[in-house]
Design a protein around this nucleic acid. Structure first.
Lengths: 349, 349
DNA sequence: AATCGATGGGAAAGCGCTCTCCGGTCGCTG
DNA sequence: CAGCGACCGGAGAGCGCTTTCCCATCGATT
């Protein structure tokens, strides 16, 4: 760590290291990249020269020749609406985003791989992104598609880009993705509710056009039917706190006898809890509530939410691994990894 | 948009465009970069050739010669603890992170500037980061320092790197930063509480070693003193929901007569609200509660929190602008932009 | 002892781009 | 009409790195 250089001075290059070590650029390059058999003694001399000079490889020069950037992109593909005003997108204020970043970084950082953030809203931006990516802006992309009709995943596969989606695409596509078994998770919730003796169970679902939401609905219905409850009253929300509150009011009004409800995410469940308290219902005594995600909202809720854990960090980490494998070997076949959800028992159900 | 190229084919370079347009590389480069006066007619021919070939500039090659990457780094400097396990850092699950990203992107994206994420935990990682940055991994960095004794800001200024901090550094440093006027915000809270008639006011503060927290404490105390309340009972939390709940229990136990409380962030305030409900206190009738941040927690709370709005997105956007200015002109003098907080009146106070 | 194979390391050719230099054309002035 | 300057566009030199190609060296084999 003796490589202290004055700010502003020209930075050391391979050439400089080579001169100090008394070898050629090629040799230094080999040593730095740990390639081939280099005489152990030279090896040491070179490393020493690297330290003395404070050499750090120039990424641009390297990627110019290797055609690799050592960067992967995290692409958030949102709707056009907020295109000029990304932070209007509530998405960034949602812990979801940070959890994905954290999971990705846990794999990427130890490997020295950069994570570059991309946000696309318009079709034009999507096309441009694909161009940039093809030109080597990044070696691959992890895509967070927030909209069921998003064209980005298709664009990317057509362009032959290395990509992995977080969350199953709305339309089948030859692309790897990671997801949680939403249906199985919902079934877990159904089993639990029935298991604790609920006789009249309702559901607050997410938007009916997003795949994850559809799976939760289907999974829950199927499981309830299996338990002898072919009919499950349901109201759809949009995954926000408020929509959960409203949906609960409606559900309670229309079905006052409900003694159990499955809410498709924790945020809505938290809202539902508030509606229930307002309505004078005790949770879980009068009505049991079960959420989905095991987000921080689950802990903040009163009573703390029994919920289905969504292993987002693990999923993101796995998506990074899949992507890396695909980048290393473009023949890598399309694979999807589906994570098992588990029920986290707290006090609301 | 006629530039459809088969995946896998060699990508078009300046050379290709030049050939198609019948000009030299240099001219194409000028046109693409919008430099100098190029004959308008040629200009058009070149652009046409660009479209025909589907040319996209190669970032690596460009930055190799310009010594600019068109990337800025968002560095999250956390404590050593979670170094191998970034997502253990609760930070990513906090909307704070996403809000900063959103604000940054609102400035960077229209300019076509990349945002690269960096997370450093150990001293070693910090030193390496500085090396990478000097070597041109990014043109500058926006630094989120999560720990009061963080050495990163100092390391960066010593290395002469372009950096802007989000949040005032714990020790004075010749570096630009953006922040919110924490003391003024706390004073706003004090004024409001006193204004609505509270006679006995307490405070739940953040950790006493972080600057933002200190400012809120000092600002609140000063304002209360001005209003004739030299003594303000206080309990410190750590900005989490739970710590707010615990602190409220303690405060209420030790000072049952309290009719107003300022809580240093919304998350803790939400916790405090729950403690209060548990204790049978009505908010705001028995005791008024005011938070800080105006985060989503403020809206999710019941009653909705009166709080001090922390313009995080605007601050992040400004930090990007400051950084960009500094990158364009390294003589740019150190400037700090302090944002005025405003009180958002809801129902808790 | 001569030949062969293996192996380590140097020379040099680019990767795709920018930008300085310089030559060639104009239009304009005296 | 000669001469000067302004301006446009081409040639080409790198930016710092990897990697192929090749030569030299050395130990082993016949």
């Amino acid at each position: 760590m003796s490589g202290e250089i004055r700010a502003g001075a020209r930075l050391p290059t391979l050439e400089d290291v080579a001169r100090v070590a008394g070898v050629s650029r090629a040799t230094v390059s080999r040593v730095v990249n740990g390639i081939r058999n280099v005489d152990p003694q030279l090896h040491e001399v070179v490393w020493h020269a690297v330290e003395v000079t404070g050499y750090v490889p120039n990424r641009a020069a390297r990627s110019l020749v290797t055609r690799r950037t050592g960067t992967i992109a995290l692409v958030v593909s949102d709707n056009e609406d907020h295109d000029d005003d990304p932070f209007m997108s509530r998405f960034f204020a949602d812990p979801f985003f940070g959890r994905v970043v954290g999971g990705l970084l846990s794999v990427l950082r130890p490997l020295g791989i950069q994570l570059a953030l991309q946000l696309v809203g318009t079709q034009q931006a999507r096309v441009r992104l694909v161009g940039d990516l093809r030109q080597g802006q990044a070696d691959g992309a992890v895509v967070l598609s927030l909209h069921p009709e998003d064209t980005l995943p298709a664009l990317m596969t057509e362009a032959g880009l290395a990509a992995v989606l977080v969350g199953r695409p709305a339309t089948p596509l030859p692309v790897s993705y990671v997801d949680v078994a939403n249906d199985a998770g919902a079934a877990l919730a159904a089993d639990h509710l029935v298991g604790r003796g609920c006789r009249q169970v309702g559901m607050i679902s997410g938007p009916v056009d997003v795949p994850a939401s559809q799976d939760r609905i289907a999974g829950f219905r199927r499981a309830m039917a299996r338990h002898g409850h072919p009919y499950v009253p349901a109201v759809a929300g949009n995954f926000t706190h408020d929509s959960g509150e409203q949906a609960m009011y409606q559900l309670h009004r229309e079905h006052p006898g409900l003694d159990g409800v499955f809410v498709a995410n924790d945020l809505m469940a938290q809202g539902a809890l508030m509606a229930l308290r307002e309505a004078g219902c005790r949770v879980p005594d009068d009505i049991a509530v079960i959420g989905f995600d095991d987000s921080s909202a689950a802990l903040a809720a009163r009573p703390p939410l029994t919920t289905i854990r969504h292993p987002l960090e693990d999923m993101a980490a796995e998506s990074a691994r899949l992507l890396l494998a695909r980048i290393d070997d473009s023949e890598q076949r399309v694979t999807s990894v589906i994570f098992d959800p588990v029920l986290v028992h707290r006090q609301s159900a």
